[in-house]
Design a protein around this nucleic acid. Structure first.
Lengths: 371, 371
DNA sequence: TTTAGCACTCAGCGGTTTTGATTGCTAATT
DNA sequence: AATTAGCAATCAAAACCGCTGAGTGCTAAA
């Protein structure tokens, strides 16, 4: 009865009840009734008392009823409180750890593939659709640029950074260009751009005032490539895994909603802004309208973690699903993976460094277990 | 009445009726009634006559009824006949051509991206889910191999073929290795593998009997990379576009079926065998059990075209959808695109060759319209 | 403050009826 | 012999209907 709108301080009993409801609803996707709570969590109390508390929680905005005579379901607000305070922290189970190992033992991979594997693991363990993307290379520091003639009229520009090799691009060169020239040009651009972050390079004011005339063309081209990197390029590197899992969630059993969701996932580019982990928090949880951006965007929750190598964020990965999701599980998986990835020998060097020490030249692709 | 089981020679009237039914059903996904055919296609005849013909066509295995008192729907057999004989050949409409142009004018891209664009166009025009994949590089001929030091302890192995640059792989090298050595090694492996197809190289018996001791390690590594290319690597290069479109098809309005289909699409690897365009036909149409391979595989039709550059098939792209699909449209789109792609200046060279002739060095990425 | 008790609400289920589209068959017609 | 009009028969889908039961809110007692 006693309404306390300026709440924030929930009595411990209310908290217990709220948690029970959220937990229950996460599990069954069914409105939770007072009797159910009494039976499973608070046998000491009568259902009537619990009903009263539930009415209070509804007043406070944490619960609603689909219709007058049904149990309660949590509001988005309730979930927010839940992930912040109420949610049990758990560890990965034996079998879940096994899945992780299965993916990461086998191949230690390039950055791209790593994100892919991560996404697969996440989707498999959480049974949700997972998304991963490689962050724009903005924070990478250029260490070396090589221009390599690969045929009469074309060359490859290879940009090496502390985070690995950027996807290189083929360019046309006049057929008059010599190997000699390429090498000198390589040296020149490395000199100019080396040691700088890509974000710096892309700033409007140029790093260098004067460019030797003969390298002007090369210089421009490399600059263009960098420009591409912070915008377009990153878009293509979004990985989705398990989009079919969406349909397993009862909230998308309605075809309308399912379609809306899948369409949203199809337009991968639009995912970027919601995936971006605004704060430098490791794990970000966005529930419901936290991530409103498109009109038709379906109501959902997005939990992402950022993944670091050498202290630099290389990408994000996480899940996207209905607001009612097992946050506890999701968070523990993401957390564990982010730590796992951090410890992987990544970037340019392969994993089997020590394994075959006298192998002068060792591919970093997935060949480690063959032969 | 007169049953003619050993048919094959349908009377022209039967053909007309069958075509009308297939066309009608493709359009509305609704059983077609005798009255409907009379009204739209054969006003000279009475519905009773048409009914008789329909009964005959049913006897022959071209039609069925969902239930006794409904119109007829085509069987898979009918579709096969339809695509072979009955289907109207059409050209792309103005607006459809516009869509194609929109995608291919903007950027002339690397092989990968080209397939992606193709898939997007296909999906957009046909309103179906489209799939594209880059064929294993087996048929590519090696023209050049470069080993480039990119840092103290790692190098990039770049394999250039007549179809373009293979995704290169980073390898570890001992830190004692000099640029000099890399260059010599490059020359050596190019000498060995140059001019050969990857499929040859991967044959068990080696091309060369004796390898200079000092290059043995390099040699092995390159060999490994080639091996990877014909198996694992190609798997990852499957592109799906518009998977949400599946849900637009009424035959997948059933959640069960929709899920089965999406799951099938999710497991991209499994798609390869069905996409493979067995014959050297340009366009392949597989309807219903033509492409049975997995148990739970949902009933569907798959239409693919193979795409060639310099006479070599570089990949396949097509659509996957319900058996009831607009084959006429799909085929014309695929056909047109396959011709378009063939004419693109592709592989290693960029499009704007002539546009900026004195641009000594021109990126082939999507920057052509800027500045 | 808690609880027992009771009336009230309402989604969902199962059964029945109605409707309407469409066929197959028969008998008449060309 | 082929076509057609006419008519009874069929059956999915929609509309309707009443019941059931889970669950609540409220009141009055503990």
């Amino acid at each position: 009865m006693a309404v306390c709108l300026f709440a924030m301080g929930l009595t411990s009993r209310k908290e217990k009840i709220l948690q029970a409801i959220v937990d229950g609803y996460i599990e069954n996707c069914q409105p939770v009734s007072s009797a159910e709570i009494k039976d499973k969590h608070l046998p000491a109390l009568s259902s009537a008392t619990i009903r009263n508390e539930m009415a209070a929680l509804e007043e406070m905005g944490y619960l609603t009823q689909p219709h007058t005579s049904s149990g309660r379901i949590p509001t988005a607000e309730a979930y927010r409180l839940y992930v912040e305070k109420l949610m049990p922290r758990r560890k990965l189970s034996r079998s879940e750890l096994k899945i992780v190992k299965r993916y990461f033992n086998k191949k230690v991979t390039e950055l791209d593939d790593m994100l892919k594997s991560t996404a697969k693991v996440i989707s498999e363990i959480t049974n949700l659709t997972s998304v991963a993307y490689v962050q724009s290379a903005d924070d990478a520091t250029v260490t070396n640029i090589r221009i390599v003639r690969i045929s009469d009229a074309s060359a490859l520009i290879i940009i090496v950074t502390d985070l690995g090799v950027l996807k290189d691009s083929t360019v046309n060169i006049g057929s008059g260009v010599t190997d000699e020239y390429c090498e000198q040009a390589s040296r020149f651009v490395t000199e100019v751009f080396g040691g700088h972050k890509i974000s710096e390079i892309n700033k409007p004011k140029s790093l260098v005032k004067e460019v030797k005339r003969e390298y002007e063309q090369v210089f421009k081209t490399v600059l263009r490539i960098f420009k591409n990197y912070s915008h377009e390029e990153m878009l293509s590197d979004i990985v989705l895994e398990g989009s079919a899992k969406i349909l397993e969630q009862p909230e998308y059993s309605n075809l309308q909603k399912a379609k809306a969701m899948l369409e949203f996932l199809d337009a991968k580019e639009e995912l970027v802004p919601v995936l971006q982990n605004s704060d430098d928090m490791n794990i970000s949880i966005k529930i419901g309208k936290d991530n409103e951006l498109r009109d038709g965007m379906p109501e959902c929750a997005i939990v992402t973690a950022s993944y670091n190598i050498n202290g630099v964020t290389v990408g994000n990965a996480g899940v996207i699903g209905p607001i009612r999701m097992d946050y506890s599980k999701v968070v523990s998986v993401l957390d564990y993976l982010s730590k796992t990835v951090q410890m992987l020998p990544a970037g340019e060097s392969a994993s089997d460094d020590e394994a075959q020490p006298d192998d002068g030249l060792e591919s970093s692709d997935s060949v480690s277990d063959e032969e």
